[in-house]
C-alpha cells in the first residue's frame, strides 16, 4: 500500500468511527431523555454513507429517509447542528422544529423525510433541476429495501428513466423493513435487477465493504455525471439494532442479531483489512478513541444548550415568518 493509499484508507476508517460514534451519541441522548420521540439509528450501515462521502460534491443533492444521520454527515451537514437538531435544541439545524427524522440543510442540498418512499420523487426534482441547468451535479435519492416497493419508487424510475435524468437511487438493503423480510416480500431477488425495466443501470455492491462501496458509488456517479442516466445502486448490509429504539424485535432471534454483528460489522471488517495491510492496532485504536471522544464531547456541549423558546412555536410556517 502506498502512503497515499494508507492515508485515504485511514480516513475511511476514521469516518466509519465518526459516523458510529455519532449514532452512539444519539443513543446516549435518548437514554438521558434529551430526545423524546422515535429514534432510528444506522449502526451497522456506516460503510454505505462513508462510501458516498468521497464522491459527493457540495452542489449534489441527497434526499434521505427516516434513517438519515449518516447520509447527512456524508453530505457535509454540520455535525454539531445535526446533533443539536436531533437533541431538540434551539441551535439545531432546523431550530428544533424538524427533529431526527426531518433534517434540512439548504446550503448542502440535503433533506429527508419520515414517509417511506417519499424521498425519491424529491430527489427526482433535484435531478430535473440539474438537468435543466445543464449542471453535472447528481441527485441521490436514498431508499431502504422497504421503500423499493412503494409506488413512489416506480413512478420516480419511470420519469427518471425516460428522461435519463441525473438520479442515483441508493438502496440500502438491510433485508428488513421493520419485521418484513426482503426475500419473502420482493417479487425479484434483488432491487438492482429491476433497473432494466426502466432502461437504467443497476448495480449491486456489498455495503459492508467500505472500499467496494466507495468504488461502486464513484462508478455510479461518474456514469451519471457523464450523462449516462439514472443508476439504481443496491448496497446490502445489516441493521444491528431494532427498527427504532425500543423495538422489541420479536421478528428475529437474539442469535440472529449476534450473528449479524459478528459477521457483518463494517468497522470490524475494515479494521481486519487494514491490519492485514500493515497498519498497526495502536494507530487504529487511536483513530477510534479520538472519534469516540469527539462525539462524547460534542454531546456534552449540546446537552447544555437550551430548547427553543416556546413562544416561537408558531414561527416559520410561512416565508414571511423567517
Amino acid at each position: 500500500m502506498t502512503e497515499q493509499d494508507q492515508t485515504l484508507r485511514l480516513e475511511r476508517y476514521r469516518r466509519l468511527w465518526r459516523f458510529r460514534s455519532f449514532d452512539d451519541a444519539c443513543l446516549e441522548a435518548l437514554r438521558r431523555n434529551v430526545i423524546h420521540g422515535e429514534l432510528h439509528v444506522g449502526i451497522g450501515q456506516e460503510a454505505i454513507a462513508v462510501g458516498m462521502a468521497e464522491s459527493l460534491r457540495r452542489d449534489d443533492a441527497v434526499v434521505s429517509t427516516h434513517r438519515n444521520h449518516f447520509h447527512a454527515l456524508a453530505k457535509g451537514v454540520d455535525r454539531r447542528a445535526l446533533l443539536a437538531e436531533i437533541c431538540e435544541k434551539a441551535e439545531g439545524l432546523c431550530r428544533g422544529r424538524g427533529g431526527h427524522m426531518h433534517p434540512f440543510d439548504v446550503e448542502n442540498n440535503f433533506s429527508a423525510t419520515g414517509i417511506v418512499g417519499a424521498s425519491l420523487p424529491v430527489a427526482l426534482g433535484y435531478a430535473y433541476a440539474f438537468h435543466l441547468r445543464q449542471s453535472d451535479a447528481i441527485a441521490v435519492g436514498i431508499a431502504g429495501d422497504g421503500s423499493s416497493h412503494t409506488g413512489a419508487f416506480h413512478e420516480t424510475m419511470v420519469i427518471a428513466g425516460a428522461q435519463k435524468l441525473p438520479l442515483l437511487v441508493l438502496v440500502e438493503n438491510n433485508s428488513l423493513a421493520i419485521s418484513i423480510r426482503f426475500d419473502q416480500i420482493s417479487p425479484t431477488r434483488t432491487v438492482a435487477e429491476r433497473a432494466s425495466a426502466y432502461g437504467v443501470r443497476g448495480m449491486h455492491v456489498d455495503g459492508t465493504d467500505v472500499d467496494a462501496m466507495t468504488d461502486a458509488f464513484a462508478e455510479a456517479s461518474r456514469h451519471i455525471r457523464a450523462g449516462g442516466g439514472p443508476v439504481i445502486l443496491e448496497a446490502t448490509c445489516a441493521r444491528f439494532r431494532g427498527h427504532f429504539e425500543g423495538d422489541p424485535e420479536g421478528y428475529r432471534s437474539r442469535e440472529e442479531r449476534q450473528h449479524l454483528r459478528a459477521q457483518f460489522d463494517p468497522l470490524r471488517l475494515y479494521r481486519d483489512r487494514l491490519e492485514a495491510f500493515g497498519l498497526t492496532s495502536s494507530e487504529l485504536d487511536a483513530v477510534e478513541a479520538a472519534e469516540k471522544a469527539a462525539a462524547r464531547d460534542l454531546l456534552a456541549e449540546i446537552m447544555a444548550l437550551p430548547q427553543p423558546d416556546p413562544e416561537g412555536a408558531l414561527l416559520y410556517r410561512f416565508s414571511e415568518e423567517v
Binding site: 434551539a90 430548547q307 410556517r317
Partner: peptide, 16 residues
C-alpha cells in the same frame, strides 16, 4: 393544535 405542524422539540410540542 393551532394550525402548525407538530414540532420536534418537547418545549414547542407542549406549547401547541
Amino acid at each position: 393544535v393551532p394550525d402548525v405542524p407538530v414540532p420536534a422539540a418537547l418545549a414547542l410540542e407542549r406549547k401547541v
